[in-house]
Amino acid sequence: MGVAITRQWTGYAAAVRLGWAVSSNWTRPILFIVYSVLRPVSMALILAVMYTVITGNAAATRPYLAFLIVGTAFWSFIQEGVSEFATGILEDRGRYHILKYSYMAPLGFPIFLIGRATSKLASAAASVVIVLLVGTLALHLDISPLRVDYPLLVAACLLAFVSVIAFAITLSMVLLAGRDLHGYGEIMAQFLYLFSGAIFPISVLPGPIAWLASLSPLPYWLELCRRAIMHGQAYLMFPNLSDGEVFLRLVAATAGTLLLGYVLYRMADRRARRLGYIDMEANW
């Protein structure tokens, strides 16, 4: 058992190195780090400028600015996670023609995919910190590292991590059906953007869509992040629910996502083997 876990770990670590090499190979490490930092910061600043222009930075709208910045900061995790899994699997098939060999390896394909995407997830985690820092220093949000409710934040983020990975792996397997799917991971991530409560509360969505969004773990996760970091100074999507109730909803939605993801992954995997998608010639 111990040996098996060690082997899985070393295989995972090798996949992490691979992911880093592939995602950072287009430039020198220092430029890659600058790019990784500037990207989320510029996204947050664009939203902040839009907010300022629209609201005139009125004091009454400050909770919404906090809502926006925290949502955007944590959103990069979903953006990078979802798109990197899909990009990795499609790039390995269409560009490097090596997916079948990774798929056949005893490591286990989901572990390979997680390793392959880990460097991007780590870069997303760093960008969370950077965006919050920008929010504090440039936009004067009242964020203090000493007042963050870390147990709540870590617990919520762990559950969200599991959900996002389950969703991303399943989506990647489903996308194997297409021959020309470059960028679809990013499109899916943007699609989720609208239903996650990252930039506006899900209650503003039309009824059935708001109901669907409420089944996803993402709004509960972002709500808990805002509560843990901002202590009531951010606009709340679920003001009538306590932290514990939101957390319970996050647990239930994560369990549902995991179950659905597992079933869909098994189906997509079997379909890929039935129809020969793993080594299908695909455009890149």
């Binding site: 082997r7 070393t10 295989g11 090798a14 996949a15 691979l18 390896a105």
Partner: peptide
Amino acid sequence: REQLWMFSQFYG
């Protein structure tokens, strides 16, 4: 060598 080593790790 890197690629081969990487696959060796996928095989435990």
